[in-house]
Nucleic acid binder design. Sequence first.
DNA 1: TCAAAAGTGTTATCCTTACACCCATGT
DNA 2: ACATGGGTGTAAGGATAACACTTTTGA
Lengths: 323, 323
Amino acid sequence: MAAGADAHLTPIEVGLTAAIVAVEADEPRILVAADPKSDTRAGLPFGPFDPLAHRTFEIGLRSWVAAQTAINVGYVEQLYTFGDRGRHASPDDTGAHTISIGYLALTRMPKNAAGLFEPWYRFFPWEDWRDGKPDILDDAIVPLLEQWARGGKSEPARPLGRKERLRHCFGAGGSPWDEEKVLDRYELLYEAGLVEEARRDGREAIVARGKIPPLGEPMRFDHRRILATAIARLRAKLKYRPVVFELMPDVFTLTELQRTVEAISGRHLHKQNFRRLVETAALVEPTGETSTATGGRPAAQFRFRRDVLQERPAPGLRVGGRA
Amino acid sequence: MAAGADAHLTPIEVGLTAAIVAVEADEPRILVAADPKSDTRAGLPFGPFDPLAHRTFEIGLRSWVAAQTAINVGYVEQLYTFGDRGRHASPDDTGAHTISIGYLALTRMPKNAAGLFEPWYRFFPWEDWRDGKPDILDDAIVPLLEQWARGGKSEPARPLGRKERLRHCFGAGGSPWDEEKVLDRYELLYEAGLVEEARRDGREAIVARGKIPPLGEPMRFDHRRILATAIARLRAKLKYRPVVFELMPDVFTLTELQRTVEAISGRHLHKQNFRRLVETAALVEPTGETSTATGGRPAAQFRFRRDVLQERPAPGLRVGGRA
DNA sequence: TCAAAAGTGTTATCCTTACACCCATGT
DNA sequence: ACATGGGTGTAAGGATAACACTTTTGA
């Protein structure tokens, strides 16, 4: 077993693609790039990785993000490396192979660049359950996926059948909705040919042609897939790391904090339980001020206690089940 | 904001590096590659990614692993993409920049290749707590890290100080040991210059020169870092996915299953609680046979119930605290 | 009959979930 | 006074952690 040590490695272009998230007016938003070549679809900002200029991926990422957008991102985390042939293709593809290392970055909404951020639920309307189950699920998605599941009985080397995957991902047939399965849901829709990116990739929708409504706005290349990964990771991370505070202003009320968590996780939360959670985790401290912004009783203002990072090993907002 | 769309991407060599895990005789082992160029250090197997030959990373990985080792890996999962300049360097480095996409793969111990697998605790002796706290921690690691922590008060842009990181990662000073923080611990040792790879990278140990004992066997390139990532991920995944069964023979006793989980997580588990967990999760079914191998009362044999994958959304072995 | 390992029953505790109610302010 | 949102106490249920004890075999 020679372990490939003498194999020469294929030269490939490596790009860093960033899902840069901010929350404004109770709406999670991502930075979309101005489109080159009059492509009407939105895309995520990306830049090349130059190992000569930057010692690590993260340094490189911060550098070109700052250069392109004047945004200094705070929290940065690698998501996944995407390299499927075909899924990076654009209509005018040159044939060169590109792999993209996806990154999640969090920032406070910058004053100057606010217009460049788009609400992320434009791209994933079925992920916003804050006002109950989105209509698009029962009206379009689940019926179309059920039709797809009836076709193609057993695929080789697939652990689960189509029906089971539909159940688990979309909570059909009694299974609960899991807000963290954002990527699984998108991938299922892709496989079923129900998102535009899949059709662009040559995958024909299994269901009746022509009458498929657009399921969320498409993005360039595989960027919607990367965004789905970012949302899923952020929703999961909220529960065991205090990352929300990267998205909050310095002082805030508990309701504002709850609204931000709800915006990200796409669910409604139980007020009292949320508050106790924040309190027992000792994540915040009162400033003493109150805010009389919203018209009811003035709310006490809080700030994030930075010292929790030194005290507790995994301080997050482990928000529970339904509410 | 031009979004880098017209930027040309730097060509870089991309390799897939695999941590291939099997468990044999209650010992977790990884496949180490025969060393090229008489490098005495062990290394992980790796191969190039050729986008022309393989549509996805995973297909490429399975292909060269099968070709090089005649092993058909079962479960495969991407870990992380590593690209730090310097950390891939070997003594006779050519200067070409390489990034490696790390993968975790699980397999049953193959008959023919058993000799190529090394117990992973050779590389991380401080991670094996099955017989209590390893001596190397109190004898060497913690004292050396405390010495390191006393130096260098505050580093810029570091959220936590050295002392706090030591506490969280190694459970010094009252914090509990978290068996999932394998990577954090290795990275801390690396930063402190206490593992050989760091010294090779030019980082001088902060502590007294010359008398630093070797902390685990070193590996080539950044392979020990990738292995640490793999162990951490596997230890975490055990708790919410039934991945252990990828490492078990078709039939097994509950004690064998427990020993395997203990081997991976490096902890001793409470027998009764483990059994109830397995039972209530309905992960296994009795075969009806018994095994009289170990000398006491014969043990009932079980097999993995593949249908749980279709029933429950996240069936794992959520093993609890100390025991 | 004894060692060695398999296998079981039960309780205390904590955390999660959900309920229903009171408080302070502006109009 | 009342609408609006802020803020709290407490009990039911379930999961977890830990206890000690019985059973079946081989030597």
